[in-house]
């Protein structure tokens, strides 16, 4: 590993991607390794089979609150009809006052997040000042766009959502992306992943951006529960193993994650309120005659 010193004309500036390029270490457009194994498998199987062969992250969401943003995700990665991982992380910090959550091909997504985090801190260190929230949102759009060709060819889609507290305007902001790198800022909430249809409905019925952070956390947990209840690929709370969703709270104080115990307590509270579910299947609730 050398000490990269550049002449003024060749200086890559504060971009980490630019640095990789300047060092001749860019395996592809984004600097994200192309995962040779994936390409090999792809050539011998249909695209639709392939999509099922890799771990996929499933439901993530970001909800605006009056103090900032709540970012949450379940912990399951799914490979076709198998569980790829029960404990995967889909929610990550990005800089001091923002976070990113990912749904889609897990390996690719984790690599993208790592690259994104690194790009943010690299910029901050070289420039001596943190990249603005808008700058971060745009940087992520470029990474997703850079991943586009690969996403289309291999079916390895990565769908991030980005949320942060904007210190210049003093409010939480949330962004979603499409696979082409399109960046869309939303006002109330964003969801992504296979369980997003159900999570969206749950959030819509309960949440408003005027809610406090504790209320917003409850809405986020409930939405993940209902997504897991309907979508087989999304993991619900795993009481047996003690695995619970990741909940990050981003406010003027910065990014922080709730402890697993804290999330477990909130889930217990939530489950106690779901009497109607528990009755289903009980003898007094049978709809027809037993055969």
């Amino acid at each position: 590993m050398q000490l990269p010193i550049f002449s003024p004309g060749e200086d890559p500036g504060p971009s980490f991607e630019g640095l990789l390029r300047a060092l001749g270490e860019t395996p592809n457009l984004t600097g994200i390794p192309t995962m040779g194994g994936v390409q090999a498998v792809h050539s011998s199987s249909k695209s639709s089979d392939l999509v099922l062969d890799f771990p996929h992250g499933t439901t993530v969401l970001a909800l605006r609150s009056q103090d900032g943003v709540v970012l949450a995700g379940d912990r399951q990665a799914t490979m076709g009809f198998q569980i790829g991982s029960r404990t995967i992380r889909k929610v990550f910090p990005a800089g001091s006052h923002a976070g990113v959550a990912i749904a889609g091909a897990a390996g690719q997504a984790v690599e993208l997040v790592k690259f994104f985090q690194l790009s943010i801190s690299h910029y901050e260190k070289l420039e001596g000042i943190a990249l603005s929230l808008d700058g971060q949102a745009n940087m992520l759009a470029q990474l997703v766009r850079g991943n586009f060709a690969q996403a289309v060819m291999s079916g390895l889609l990565v769908m991030p959502i980005f949320a942060g507290y904007d210190q210049s305007s003093g409010q939480g902001r949330i962004f979603e992306y499409d696979v082409t790198g399109g960046r869309y800022e939303e006002h109330e909430f964003v969801v992504a992943g296979s369980g997003s249809v159900h999570a969206r409905t749950a959030v819509k019925l309960s949440h408003k951006p005027s809610h406090t952070t504790p209320e917003t956390v409850k809405h986020a947990l409930a939405a993940l529960f209902w997504a897991a209840d309907e979508d087989v690929a999304t993991g619900g709370p795993d009481v047996l193993r003690g695995i619970y969703p990741t909940i990050a709270i981003i406010t003027a104080d910065g990014y922080s994650e709730m402890s697993e115990v804290g999330v477990a307590d909130l889930f217990d509270e939530f489950l106690e309120q779901q009497d109607s579910i528990r009755k289903v299947g009980q003898p007094e609730d049978q709809l027809g005659e037993a055969p």
Partner: peptide, 17 residues
């Protein structure tokens, strides 16, 4: 300053690699 930037670049690249 040039040495500092080189150091940040070296460290970030090595940590990534």
């Amino acid at each position: 300053e040039q040495l500092r930037m080189g150091g940040v670049r070296h460290a970030d690249f090595k940590g990534y690699y």
